[in-house]
Design a protein around this nucleic acid. Structure first.
Lengths: 355, 355
DNA sequence: CTGAAAGCGCTTACAG
DNA sequence: CTGAAAGCGCTTACAG
């Protein structure tokens, strides 16, 4: 494998000049540039990233913005792990990665975090954009400052984000519909228990619900589907609403929870001992897995949140340091999780070039 | 972050001595060693892998042994892609990775490939061990030569392999049982269409079948299950056997194919226009996906073969260069693939530190 | 516009 | 047992 010294010798120039050509810096005569480029091409030269990084002076700051994870049962633990793994892998490069956490139920906290990120003025940002209109203002500021940003988990359309890493919500809802349909009797009714809080943050809940309903429309499986709204993290409210609705309609045998809070629904179902109730929810985090194991939740749809965090940081890192243009978006998998395969989804700590 | 120069200064020794301590080489007095080690610990020193690799002299040869992929519809294309991705990522380190392909239906070809690998005498080996007894002889030779080896996709128990990367076959069969059960009527019968060829290579086919049957035993869902044997890559034989058996028993409404060849079964089902026949198979390769799309195959169980190849090379690489001890085994996921989520499973070309 | 030289943080002979 | 020096393949001021 040729080195820049080899190239320099063949071209009768110094390595400094070869370096200038490789990085398209100016200060090289057109003739010299052409000559060097030809030889570069001829040998299909690739610079040694190791040596390059070691000698590199410029350093980068990457900011990451995501909700804080309040408990061990929370969805957001996994992306955090993925982010930490990525940070660990890129530690030896001259990048500093800083995480900023906000309260996902609290707009003020979100705004405050934005201010801190803007004060830092990083070279790039990875974020899960909650609070639609505030996020829009934020990204327009980022655009002005020319700070590249990557969305993960939550998407906002027609922004200038570098890429989006996350699941196709409509499709994941559609599959949920298919799964619930398979385990219900022909005459059973279904309810979709939608979250009420943070309406403006959860575009994807809406898309999942639409996809769910779409399954029944497309496959001419007529079903009575009742949409209910409840704060999916308020057990009391869930209990009240379900108690009321299920007593009104005893044909309801299936519940679809398009958020990550199905454990709260499962808790009530177990308490009320509704043995023949079927449940499909989202996200295989510890809190939900408990009820998957006990059989109350039949299926969970998972999106590999570890990987979302990991990829977010990795993609931005490669863009900044190696000018590697990412894909337009990275679709997360739509994993169908049952109690039988749940334990095989969590990755063994990723194999990176670290130690 | 401290460098070995910092450590050397603090300990009043040369960097050469610090290097000797770090790598536990001899030629250092106990007193000096202790002193340096203390300072190393104090600063939680980690060597810069970039610089280390760049300066490193020793080079490694890794061999990979796997079946050649005869067609575009073959399972083995994916691990090959994973292996190539890994090779690309580690190219800058002083490792050379060589792939050796054999005909998985031909013992002589397998033996010949083994000979070529032994002639090369690599520093490490990643392999999918077909042909049980030949493989046993092979590994004992590897043991004698002290060549570490990693199994992927296929496991052989109680060998001295560094690790195994693959799916838990019994469990994946169990899930297949669950899925087929969900879509069949209570009275329907099932047939398991097992491959006949290469009996000694496919331990996992057996385990999958056992797991499948186990589901019905455990969940007290009585079912008539008929085991049939046919070369799953011989369409004619499949047609003959199925025609005969299905005419004998018209209650058979579900077929389980515990190998990767379910497309060949699907082909016959479509040809014979058996609209109400349900099919569960393994491996989401192109050939099978076609029939998943058309609806003839209901579910495929996938094991992320790309990742198996990728991890195999990566794990061995890290073991050889960084003495990173791998886990005892890396369980592949048990992905439930339907036509609705199939397109989200293939990974975007992995993000590695390359270019 | 171009080159010579120092330096990134290690490893490796070599000399003593 | 220990140190001084060269070298891995780049990047970066600096001098001309």
């Amino acid at each position: 494998m040729k080195t820049i010294k080899d190239i320099a010798e063949e071209a009768n120039v110094s390595v400094g000049t070869v370096d200038r050509v490789i990085h398209k810096r100016n200060g090289v005569s057109p003739v010299t540039r052409a000559k060097v480029q030809l030889i570069l091409k001829k040998h299909n030269f690739k610079r040694n990233v190791l040596a390059s990084t070691l000698a590199y002076k410029k350093s980068y700051t990457i900011a990451v913005m995501l909700p804080s994870s309040d408990s061990k049962f929370d969805f957001w633990i996994e992306p955090i792990k993925g982010i930490e793994t990525a940070i660990d892998e890129i530690r030896r490069y001259k990048v500093e990665t800083l995480c900023f956490y906000f309260d996902k139920l609290n707009l003020a906290s979100y705004k405050q975090t934005i201010k801190r990120v803007l004060d830092l003025n990083p070279d790039g940002l990875v974020l899960a954009p909650f609070f639609y209109s505030t996020s829009i203002e934020f990204t327009s500021e980022l655009n002005q400052r020319n700070i590249p940003y990557v969305f993960f988990n939550i998407d906002i359309e027609s922004q200038q984000n570098l890429t989006f890493i996350g699941q196709e919500s409509f499709q994941s809802g559609l599959i949920s519909g298919k799964l619930l349909n398979m385990i219900l009797g022909k005459q059973d009714h279904i309810t979709i228990l939608r979250s009420r809080k943070n309406v403006d943050t959860h575009h994807s809940i809406d898309a999942r619900s639409k996809g769910f309903v779409e399954f029944y429309l497309k496959n001419s499986s007529p079903r009575t589907i009742i949409e209910l709204y409840a704060d999916d993290f308020n057990p009391e409210e869930i209990e009240n609403i379900l108690k009321r609705e299920l007593s009104k309609n005893n044909l309801i045998k299936g519940i679809f929870v398009p958020s990550s809070g199905s454990s709260n629904v499962a808790e009530y179902i177990e308490k009320a001992e509704m043995k023949d109730m079927h449940l499909v929810g989202f996200d295989a985090h510890t809190g939900n897995l408990k009820y998957l194991e006990s059989g109350t939740i039949d299926f969970l749809i998972d999106q590999d949140p570890f990987d979302q965090g990991y990829l977010g940081v990795k993609v931005l890192f490669e863009y900044l340091l190696f000018k590697k243009q990412p894909l337009k978006n990275y679709s997360s998998p739509i994993n169908i999780v049952t109690k039988e395969n749940a334990r095989f989804f969590r990755k063994p700590s990723m194999i990176g070039i670290t130690s």
